[in-house]
Design a protein around this nucleic acid. Structure first.
Lengths: 247, 247
DNA sequence: CGCCACCTTCCGTTGAACGGGAAGTCCAGC
DNA sequence: GCTGGACTTCCCGTTCAACGGAAGGTGGCG
């Protein structure tokens, strides 16, 4: 727009603004928001006002700003993550009930696993996978399950880019992990996120045997019984896939 | 911006654009999106391109547009609905398990109940309350539970505005419903949404005894046993309130 | 009271956004 | 294979929405 010294468009600014909110949905002061988003205070003030008029943000007295209900509503009314979530929820609940463990559902976005839903067992070990949280592919069982069942071309590209910062040896390790995952039909990572837990994940496959999502659990190491976990997850994953195909 | 014949800002346009997506998260053709949002095709094309570059929308070959994962992620990372959902989920699951019924969680927005979360019993009667769906206050137990525990001033204003289109008699009926709800501590609506079901909802109260949310179930009429339902809901509601106060 | 930090409002400048038009492309169906 | 419909991609003159510095409130604290 006019006079934009930073050279980005209104859309860019709006994205910067709503991206500036941290994980925990606490209120932000206007000046803090301006700083986080890197926008001039005046601009921030004006944009916040505009967005607030539509309910995308909410302002509280004292210059406090927080994400608005309307934004939540719009997004949660129509989103690609919803159909998946809808199809998966019953099965996730089953898993949670039968196994009494933390259950999570993730999709691949870029080179990361994006967690779409999560049911946590009360009193359970910490599950770092927050809803709408991300984890790198190579450190999450969900990521491995997702990447292990993608086009070969995509996997190559991933490994190539991975080798750049981490080195060839590390990339070879990941290649092995992916191969194991693909062969076994499930991914397993012990003590990577948390020393005393283990992540297990299976892919949710579409008709062309590509992973569109992953279903996983995080269990304390000593409680782990693969023989019971994997079949249950795989059965549920097939159920989810069927549900997706129908819609 | 310049030349905006419609006279609305970029923010308005973006809101119009993302609001244009219907409930079911199906892809929209570009031209269809332009028509729904009332924007010129060229403008729609440009804005969609910009939004897609940030991942807020996704474009598929053939001019198809759908909401993007990134948008879902941003919103679900920080939103006022999330803290509530987080606090409520364990209790909702308990209710669902123990009572084996549809459970829903709503907040008040305008003169409607906005459903924030919903767990549905498989094989259960239809529950019309979709996630991110809305229902008018006077036809939903959730709405009544919410409105019955608000400031007197707000209730008056609601009834005043309600009387305008619906007439004074109808408003008096609602006033009675609200009074009953307030006195009993729970709202009950038989066969309004669906002839064979009954909605029961209790408020989740903050320290000042104002409803910040409502917790409800939808049960088949013949299975209904108030004696069992209401105490369970109220207990859960108190648990949720405690969880909210802590955070 | 005076300082400070922050929110809010004002206002002249300006260039980014707008959108109509038209040509190019791609696909489906008759 | 041709036609129609829809998406895509240029171009370009117009214009006013957005910009942001500066000045003016506001509230809290020592």
């Amino acid at each position: 727009m006019a006079n934009s010294s930073s050279g980005d468009s209104v859309v860019d600014r709006i994205v910067r603004l709503i991206s500036a909110f941290p994980q925990d949905a606490t209120d932000l002061r206007l000046s803090e928001l301006a700083e986080r988003s890197g926008l001039p205070l005046t601009t921030t003030h004006r944009l916040v006002g505009q967005l607030a008029r539509h309910g995308l943000l909410e302002t509280a007295p004292g210059g406090l700003v927080r994400p608005g209900l309307r934004l939540w509503e719009l997004v949660n009314r129509a989103s690609p993550a919803l159909a998946l979530r809808q199809a998966a929820m019953p099965f996730m609940e089953d898993i949670q009930q039968v196994l009494n463990q933390n259950v999570n559902l993730a999709v691949l976005d870029g080179w990361e696993a994006l967690f779409v839903e999560r049911l946590s067992r009360r009193g359970s070990v910490a599950n770092r996978a927050q809803v709408a949280g991300r984890m790198a592919i190579h450190i999450s069982s969900a990521g491995l399950a997702l990447m292990a069942h993608q086009d070969k071309a995509l996997q190559q590209e991933y490994l190539r880019q991975f080798a750049d910062p981490y080195g060839k040896l590390a990339a070879d390790d990941v290649r092995t992990l992916l191969a194991d995952t693909s062969r076994q039909g499930f991914a397993q990572l012990k003590g990577v996120v948390d020393p005393d837990t283990c992540g297990i994940a299976v892919p949710v496959l579409n008709r062309r045997h590509r992973a569109v999502a992953s279903l996983g659990v995080v269990v304390p190491l000593r409680e782990m019984r693969l023989q019971a976990l994997v079949p249950a997850l795989q059965t549920a994953a097939r159920g989810i896939a069927r549900g997706l195909a129908e819609s």
